[in-house]
């Protein structure tokens, strides 16, 4: 499996990662090598095998819809790169 620079840029866009033009060649080569490794999976005939999503095959535990956490709004907002009036600040999204 070989990826070209355009495909790398498309994947980077889907992942919301900026990568510079000069890096795309290296990423294309690295990602292609990783996908070549992954191709080994095709030697296995597994269509009849059930996919395994959880190592213990446990059911997902559900909790009651009840507030259990303390209000940590102030501490959590302290980690925001930009905030004002207890709101997260981002560039203008509506003209």
């Amino acid at each position: 499996m070989s990826l070209d620079s355009d495909q790398v840029l498309k994947i980077a866009h889907l992942a919301r990662l900026s990568i510079s033009e000069s890096e795309t060649g290296q990423y294309a080569s690295d990602l292609s090598n990783i996908l070549d490794l992954v191709e080994t999976m095709n030697t296995a005939q597994v269509d009849a095998i059930t996919p395994m999503a959880h190592p213990l095959n446990m059911n997902q535990r559900l909790r009651l819809d009840k507030v259990t956490e303390n209000d940590q709004r102030d501490q959590l907002m302290d980690n925001a790169p930009a905030s004002a009036d207890e709101l997260f600040m981002v560039p203008k999204v509506i003209e």
Binding site: T50, P51, M52, A53
Partner: peptide
């Protein structure tokens, strides 16, 4: 990027689902 690629439309069955089946093996 590898994760994004293997989960992207059209590739999910060939990569992610297949890997989950092999995980079972």
């Amino acid at each position: 990027m590898i994760g994004t690629y293997v989960l992207s439309a059209g590739y999910y069955d060939a990569y992610y689902l297949k890997a989950q089946r092999i995980r079972h093996l």
